[in-house]
Each structure stands twice: as C-alpha cells, then as structure tokens.
C-alpha cells in the first residue's frame, strides 16, 4: 500500500460524512454548514489529484460565494416564528433505497471498470491548464462570462418581483 492511499481514505471520509449529515439533518442552517464542510473536503480531493488551481477555485467559488448565497437565501425565507423546518415528504421512505441502489450500481460498475488510461497520474500542471484555457478554450471562457451575466440579471428579475395584490 502506497503512502497516498490512507490520505485518500481520510479525504473521502471528509467528503462523504458531511454529505450524509447534510441530507439527514433537520435544520437548514446545520445542513448548510455540513455542505460547506463537504465542499472543503472536495477541495482536499482536488489537492490529492494535483489540481491545485481547481482546489483554490473550489474554495473561492463554492466555500466563499455559493455557500454564502445559500445561507442568505435561508435567512431571507425565514418565517416570523423562526426558520422553516421542512423535512421529508410523503415519498421520502422510497428515496433512501433508491439512493442506496444507485450507490451500489455505480460502485460495482465504476469499481470494476478498466480504462485505457494509465494507472499512474500524469500531473497536468497549472501552466498547462492556463495555456489550454487562454488559447484553445478562450472563446468558451468568454462565453461563460456572458452566461453568468444573464444569470445575474435573471436572478435579480426573479427575486425582485413585487407581489401583486
């Protein structure tokens, strides 16, 4: 067993345990905090995969921006009496077996799959990523900013709509 394998299992636990806690916990605020822990775990997974730039982006975008956005949405939709505690609905008993079945199928298929990819990582560098992003994929990169702009305008339009009485 190589030295990196125990680290992989540790990092996997950092991802999976907060994810399960997030779905299982009743309070939305606690779920959001578990989600932040899970995102930090995913950033750690990226570090073990030699994707340092993506790990930094994960921390900035998911932990920094998206989590705060979700926390704001939770705060904005509170009732006067306190946080809305919606939990499981009528079909929820079927959701856990469905999710478990999906996990078993994905685990068997992905665990036994053999790819033409080598077993040793090639360590693509950040410089390689930057030259790909700003040469070959420059146009999609600029297009992504347009998508974000449209999404911002749409979100403002949706959330600012006055209630018609």
């Amino acid at each position: 067993m190589h030295f990196s394998t125990p680290i992989f299992y540790l990092v996997s636990a950092l991802v999976i345990i907060p994810a399960v806690l997030m779905v299982a916990m009743r309070n939305l605020i606690y779920s959001a905090i578990a989600m932040i822990a899970c995102f930090i775990g995913v950033a750690a997974v990226f570090v073990t995969l030699n994707a340092e730039l993506l790990a930094a982006s994960q921390l900035l975008i998911y932990v920094g921006a998206i989590s705060i956005l979700i926390l704001f949405a939770i705060m904005l939709t509170r009732r006067r009496s306190g946080a809305i505690c919606l939990f499981f609905h009528r079909q929820s008993w079927a959701a856990l077996p469905a999710g478990a079945a999906l996990a078993v199928v994905l685990g068997i298929v992905l665990g036994s799959a053999r790819f033409s990819a080598g077993s040793a990582p090639k360590n693509p560098s950040t410089a390689n990523l930057a030259s790909l992003l700003f040469n070959q994929y420059a146009f999609p990169f600029e297009l992504a900013s347009l998508v974000l702009l449209v999404a911002i305008v749409g979100a403002v339009l949706l959330a600012m709509r006055e209630r018609r009485s």
């Binding site: 856990l96 999710g99 478990a100 999906l102």
Partner: peptide, 9 residues
Amino acid sequence: GALFSVGAW
C-alpha cells in the same frame, strides 16, 4: 459515485 448517490438521495 458515492457522493452523487448521496446528492440524488
């Protein structure tokens, strides 16, 4: 796959 299944659940 495990994380995807938890999300689907």
